[in-house]
Amino acid sequence: MTTPVTAIQSVRLDDNNDILVLLDQTLLPNEKVFLQLSTLEDIWEAIYHLKVRGAPAIGIAAAYGIYLSVKRSNAASYAELADQFRKAKQYLASSRPTAVNLFWALQRMEDRLHQEADQSVAVIKQALKEEADNIRAEDEKVCLAIGEHALSLLEPGWGLLTHCNAGTIATAKYGTALAPIYLGQERNYQFSVYADETRPLLQGARLTAWELQEAGVDVTLICDNMASIVMKEGKVQAVLVGCDRVAANGDTANKIGTSGLAVLAKHYGIPFYVCAPLSTIDQGCTSGADIPIELRSKEEISTQWYEKPMAPQGVKIYNPAFDVTDHHLITAIITEKGIAYAPFDESLSRLLQKEN
C-alpha cells in the first residue's frame, strides 16, 4: 500500500542509532532517498544545500542535530556541556541566515538547557531530546491549525496559486500554505492548484507539484512568469504562500519571486494569504528592511541544472534566495492562533500575546 504524502516524515530522529534521518529534497521527484546523518557537519551541509528545507523542517532538523551533538558529548559538568552546546549552536545557525525558525529552535533548545542547569549531564541530555521531540510534535499541530484557519477563507472549487514549497516535506506534517489544500482534498473541496516552478531551484516543480499529484490534488505546473496570465484569465481566486520570517510590521520574507506574485495579486484584486507559524514572527525586525537576505552561489543559475552552461562565462550573477513582500500587499497572515489583518503590528502582537 502506498504511503500517503502527508504521512511522510521528512525529518525524524533515530535515537537508537544516534542519527538524524532526512528526506533528501534535492533528489525529488526522481528519487526518494532518506539520508542518515550522524555529525553536526553533515547536518549543517544538509541545511545549507537544501537537502532539508522549509522553515519548520529546518528548525526540527536543527533541534535534533544539536541534541545529537550534546548526546555524544563526554562533558562531566553542566558548564562544560553548555560551552559545547553554544559552539554547536553558533555553527548550525550559520547555515541559513534568513529562516528564523532555525534560530528560534536553537534558542528554544538553549533555553531548555539553562532550565536544567542543576540536573545531571544525563538528565540534561534526555531533557534536550524531549524538547526536540516537542518542537516536532507541536509543528504538526500548528500546521493543522493553520490549515483549518486558511480553509475558512476559501470556497469549494476555487483555483489557488502557490509558490515554492510549503507542504508536508517542509514541515512535520500537512505543511503551511499547502495545509488547507490537503484538508480541502479530504473534504471534497475540489480545488484546482497552480504551482509556480519557482526558479532557480525549482522547488515548485520538483516538490510541490510532486506532493500534490501524489495526494490526488488537481495540480497544474506553470513557469513563474505565467502567473499573471492565469490570474488575468480568472483561473486563480486566492494565492497561498509560506514564509521564512515575518517582521513586526507584517513584511514577510519568502522564496524569491513571492513579492512579485503579491504585486500581481494586488493588481488583479486577488487575496494574497501568507501562512506563517507564530515561530516565524521576529519582533526584533521592525520591518522587512531588517531581514537578512541570503545570497547563494552563481552556479544555481548558470550551470547547476544544465548539461552545458546556460549563461556566458564571466557574466555577473545576482542570486538572492528570498525577497520581502511589503505588508501593504498582504491580505492576511494566517497563524495557528488565528488570522491577522492590517494593521499587522497590532494584530500580530495580539496573537503572540495569545500564544504566551
Rank of each mutant, 00 (worst) to 15 (best):
R206N: 15
N254E: 05
S192D: 13
Q213S: 13
D251W: 00
Q237K: 13
Q213V: 11
A227N: 13
R199Y: 11
E197A: 11
L212D: 00
L212W: 01
N254I: 04
V217Q: 03
G234I: 08
V193F: 11
V217E: 00
E233Y: 08
P200D: 13
L240P: 12
L261T: 06
A253T: 00
I229Y: 10
V246H: 00
N225C: 13
L202I: 04
V230M: 01
L264V: 06
A238S: 11
C223D: 09
N225M: 11
E214F: 10
V217G: 06
A238R: 12
K232C: 09
N225A: 13
K255Q: 00
E233Q: 15
H267K: 15
T198Q: 00
F191E: 03
N225R: 12
S192W: 06
E233A: 15
A215P: 09
V241A: 03
A253P: 07
T198L: 07
N254M: 05
V239P: 05
S259P: 05
S192A: 14
G204E: 07
C223P: 11
R206L: 06
L264P: 00
D218I: 14
V230F: 02
K266D: 14
Q203W: 07
Q203T: 05
C243H: 01
C223L: 14
L202N: 15
Y194S: 09
M231Q: 05
L207K: 00
N249Q: 03
L207N: 01
K266N: 15
A247Q: 11
V263H: 14
V263R: 15
V193A: 13
G257W: 00
C243T: 11
H267F: 11
N254F: 03
T252M: 01
M231S: 03
A209K: 14
V246Y: 01
I270R: 02
E211D: 07
M226Q: 15
V230P: 05
A238D: 05
G242V: 10
Y268S: 12
Y268P: 07
D244T: 02
G260S: 12
A195V: 13
E197P: 07
G234S: 05
V263A: 14
V217M: 02
L202F: 15
Q203D: 03
K232D: 15
V246K: 01
Y194R: 01
V246P: 05
Y268W: 15
A227C: 15
A247G: 12
I256W: 08
G260H: 08
C243S: 14
Y194V: 09
A195T: 09
M231K: 04
F191K: 07
A209V: 13
G257T: 01
Q203G: 02
G204M: 08
K255T: 06
C243F: 02
E233G: 12
K235Y: 09
S192N: 15
I222A: 03
A253I: 02
R245M: 11
E197D: 06
A265T: 10
L264R: 02
A262S: 10
I270W: 04
T198S: 10
D251E: 04
K255V: 05
A195L: 12
S259K: 06
N254Q: 02
G242M: 08
Q203F: 06
D244G: 10
P200A: 14
G242F: 08
M226H: 10
M231A: 04
V241C: 02
D224V: 10
V230C: 04
E233S: 14
D196P: 07
